[in-house]
Design a protein around this nucleic acid. Structure first.
Ligand code: FES
Ligand code: FES
Lengths: 141, 141
DNA sequence: ACATACCTGACTAAAATGGTCAAGTTTAGA
DNA sequence: TCTAAACTTGACCATTTTAGTCAGGTATGT
């Protein structure tokens, strides 16, 4: 059970953005350099963040990205969903009556994993970008 | 962020075992049929469960596996660790002072992921096989 | 003896991951 | 108006992980 780089990078990049977008839009190039993330990969990630209205972009020279909401309104949940880093613990389709392995009934562990999913999502719903900013306010990089 | 089949199967198989091992050892063949898991794959999984003293085996005809502890003493935590389904949220080595991406300091999201890891592990430490048995006591399969 | 069931290790097809690369379009500023 | 910075899109790819399979064993109750 592990987190992928895409989700990790998305959050890192947005924390960076939240710190520096107060005056001018921030270019991906800057984020790439500060956070050590491949520029090309960042572009893929921000394309998704934009589609999900988490960031806004300005093209051209001096362009870049800014947050489209206040940091305390952006929950980790929103970020991770945007980049398809969904929490998926059950194997089956939740809505279906059928179980995993194509069985007719839900398996013996179904309820357990479903509880776990809720447990994790609760964590993500509570945490906002703002919380992360506080947590790192002393740091400079 | 997702759970792999290995962890899922391990828990499924142990719930099955906990139900049926009261009289005789349970053969992997039976578990395979009841739970719809490949026999060969189960063997790999049980090899690890045995190494971690979660199950005991009896060879030969009428052989099979039994739990080596009571269901309320076996936490999900123990099971998942045994089959290497570890929760891994941080990218960096936790002990090291260095951050991920080979940076000199911990990244801006390090604390967050570390909290998440604790959050999830707490869930696994609280849940025992016994809890799952209760949860499914009405079910027959 | 022989069937049953555990045991071990090597192998592999398919999917996911973590990117790279190429070819644009848009726009600020000189 | 020219140009460079920066966003945009889509294809491509190497590596790793996953979820098994396969081919041999070895032990033991009947
Ligand atoms: S996980 Fe839903 S039925 Fe098994
Ligand atoms: S996750 Fe530990 S430094 Fe980034």
């Amino acid at each position: 059970m592990k987190l992928t780089s895409k989700g990790r990078y998305a959050v890192m990049a947005l924390v960076d953005l939240a710190r520096f977008d107060t005056i001018n839009p921030v270019s991906l190039r800057d984020i790439s350099l500060r956070q050590g993330i491949s520029l090309d990969y960042l572009e893929q990630i921000f394309s998704k963040l934009k589609k999900n209205q988490i960031v806004k972009s300005t093209r051209g020279t001096q362009g870049g990205y800014i947050l489209s909401k206040k940091p305390n309104e952006i929950k980790l949940n929103n970020i991770l969903n945007a980049v398809d880093e969904k929490v998926k613990t059950v194997q089956c389709k939740k809505e279906s009556k059928k179980g995993c392995n194509g069985r007719a009934t839900k398996c013996v562990t179904h309820n357990l994993w479903d509880e776990l999913e809720t447990h994790i999502n609760t964590f993500f719903e509570k945490k906002s970008l703002q919380d992360l900013l506080k947590d790192n306010s002393e740091r400079v990089n």
